[in-house]
C-alpha cells in the first residue's frame, strides 16, 4: 500500500476511535440514576463478593432457604460472621487470600475453564507447529552458563514457595507455573538442558486429570462438583485451606509443565526431540 493511501486510512481510523471514545464517556456524565456505576462502586455491600469475603455464604443460604427467596440477599447483610486473621477457625474456607478463595472455591469452575484454555492453547501450538523445525541457536557463552546454573535452582524454589503459599499471600498456581517455566527457558538457553516434551506432557495431563478427579470426588462426598470435603483450619496457617492447597499445587505443576512445552515448541519445533 502506498504512503498516501495509508494516511487517509489512518485518519478515518482515528476519527472512528475518537467517536467511540466520546460515546464511551457518555455513561459517566449521565444525570440522575446514571451515576449508578460510581455510586455502587463505593460500597462493597451491594455485591455478591461481600459474602465471599466474609466467608458467610452458607449462613446466608440457610437464612434465605427459610424465606425461600434468593433474590433478596442484599437485605440481610448483618448476619455475616467476623473473620480475624490467626484466630477464626472452621470457616467455609480458611484462605487468608480472599482472591484465592474466590478463584478456587466459590468460582472454582471458572478456574477449571481457565486451566483448559491454557491446556488447549499449548496443545494447539504443538499441533500447529508440529511440522516445522527451526534453525539451531548459538552456543551459550561462559557467563551465561554460570549465571543460569546459579539462578535456576532459586527460581524453581521460589516457584514452589509461591504455589504452596497461594492461599496466604499474593500469587498462586499460575504465576508460580510461569516462574518455573521461565527457569526451564533459562536452562534451555543457558546450558542446553534438553528436556523431552513427551515427559512434560505426561506431567501436565496427569496433573490436569487429578485436578478434575479431586473435583469430581466432591460429587461423592458433598453432593456437588468442586465441593470441599477436607476440614479447614485456622485462617492464616499453611494447612488452613481444605482442597485449595492441593489443587493449587497441581495447577502450579501443570502450568509450569505446560508453558515449558510451549517454550520448547517455539524454540525448536516439536519435530526433533524424542520420537
Amino acid at each position: 500500500m502506498r504512503e498516501s493511501d495509508f494516511n487517509v486510512g489512518k485518519f478515518f481510523a482515528f476519527l472512528f476511535v475518537l467517536i467511540l471514545f466520546l460515546f464511551m464517556l457518555s455513561p459517566l456524565f449521565e444525570e440522575g440514576d446514571g451515576a449508578k456505576i460510581d455510586k455502587n462502586l463505593s460500597d462493597i455491600k451491594n455485591r455478591v463478593s461481600y459474602f465471599h469475603s466474609l466467608k458467610s455464604v452458607k449462613e446466608i443460604e440457610r437464612i434465605l432457604s427459610d424465606n425461600n427467596d434468593f433474590s433478596k440477599y442484599r437485605e440481610i447483610t448483618d448476619s455475616a460472621k467476623t473473620v480475624i486473621f490467626g484466630e477464626s477457625k472452621d470457616l467455609e474456607n480458611g484462605t487468608a487470600n480472599l482472591v484465592t478463595s474466590i478463584v478456587l472455591d466459590y468460582r472454582g469452575f471458572d478456574t477449571l475453564g481457565e486451566l483448559i484454555v491454557l491446556f488447549i492453547s499449548i496443545l494447539g501450538l504443538t499441533i500447529i507447529l508440529s511440522t516445522l523445525s527451526f534453525a539451531k541457536f548459538e552456543e551459550p557463552s561462559f557467563l551465561q552458563i554460570t549465571g543460569v546454573k546459579f539462578v535456576t535452582p532459586f527460581m524453581i524454589l521460589v516457584g514452589i514457595y509461591i504455589f504452596l503459599h497461594g492461599h496466604l499471600s499474593p500469587g498462586g498456581g499460575f504465576p508460580a507455573g510461569a516462574i518455573i517455566a521461565t527457569a526451564t527457558l533459562f536452562s534451555l538457553i543457558g546450558c542446553k538442558f534438553n528436556y523431552r516434551v513427551s515427559n512434560l506432557k505426561f506431567i501436565e495431563s496427569n496433573a490436569g486429570f487429578f485436578v478434575i478427579l479431586l473435583a469430581t470426588l466432591g460429587l461423592y462426598f458433598t453432593g456437588s462438583f468442586f465441593g470441599n470435603y477436607l476440614p479447614t483450619g485456622i485462617v492464616g496457617k499453611l494447612y488452613s485451606s481444605s482442597l485449595i492447597l492441593i489443587i493449587y499445587s497441581l495447577v502450579g505443576l501443570k502450568v509450569g509443565a505446560e508453558l515449558s512445552v510451549g517454550i520448547k515448541t517455539l524454540y525448536n519445533g516439536e519435530k526433533d526431540d524424542d520420537r
Binding site: 461481600y50 466474609l54 447483610t77 448483618d78 486473621f85 487468608a96 480472599l98 482472591v99
Partner: peptide, 21 residues
C-alpha cells in the same frame, strides 16, 4: 483483599477491603 496478621473483617460497617471478585 489479603488478610495479614492483626487484620479483622467485621460486618457490616467496618469492611474496608477492595472487591476481590
Amino acid at each position: 483483599p489479603i488478610l495479614h496478621s492483626g487484620m479483622k473483617l467485621i460486618s457490616p460497617n467496618s469492611i474496608n477491603i477492595s472487591d476481590p471478585l
